[in-house]
Amino acid sequence: MDIATKGGIDARRLIGVLLVVLALAILPFFLSDYRTFQFTQAIVYAIVLLGLNILTGYNGQISLGHGAFFAIGAYTAAILMDRFGVPYWATLPAAGVICFVFGFLFGLPALRLQGHYLALATFALAVATPQLLKYKRLEEWTGGVQGIVIMKPDPPFGLPLSQDRWLYLFTLFVAIVLFVVAWNILRGRTGRALIALRDQPIAAEAMGVNGAVYKSTAFGISALYTGIGGALGAIAVQFVAPDSFTAFLSISFVVGIVVGGLATLSGAIWGALFIQFVPNFADQISKAAPWAIYGAVLLVFIYLMPGGVAWMLRGAVAKILRR
């Protein structure tokens, strides 16, 4: 059982979570700007994986195309900042809303698709995304193949922080808010409905769960999280271009939730750390090495540890406590 499916939270766990948050908040002051930037990206991925996990882990709808929503979020932020001079923090709600609409709309037809077919449709979306972003008619907005360069925001109120540290703290704050919201969505009635629709769709419908509404809303919320992640990612990297959003980006999100743990909240964090840092180390062996490792790790996890890191840790903790 994940905490999300239990009713409340006990004091011991609350203190644990607060300690982790505190540790994360002071982390950048011990790191170089570059490392801080890497951790910012890891938090961005954590937000995306959380969103994907709501859809795939909790609701059982397979998406191989979340890179597309990530791209929409990133481009929304970049265009708003570059064209309209909107401040960076104001682009996040916009990215979220636009992605929610796109996700919801994509979720409506997806209602009729199950399992392999949904995977196929979203896979097609992922493959087609870079080409759509390069489309000539949209070039005026998207900058075509060149993409858009944006500025890194300065810390507000003259705070004595470097840009990277400020952005890290800002991203961390957004992530915490989003995690609390997700925890609240998933621990109650909605979460149970999503899980019921995943495990026993017919029985769930018979019990009065409105499958169409829950499933398409889950798609929308999932896209909203991914879009906010995309916007934050664009701000952190200061650059968007079509070729950063290939099908392999979507696949790496899938890798992330499988490694972290399906249908767990903490899994998003483990998965994010994995897809952020493993390629960095593996790159030194060969350009192809990260993906070879991804593939092998996917197989290993599916065969040996289908619950991912989150469930493994939980099992280990339970064993220690029992002694």
Partner: peptide
Amino acid sequence: VLSVVIVFIALLVIFNSLAGW
């Protein structure tokens, strides 16, 4: 289904990176 799809994706990634390697 999810496990099967992930295994196929793993194969896709492995062949792609092997060829690249």
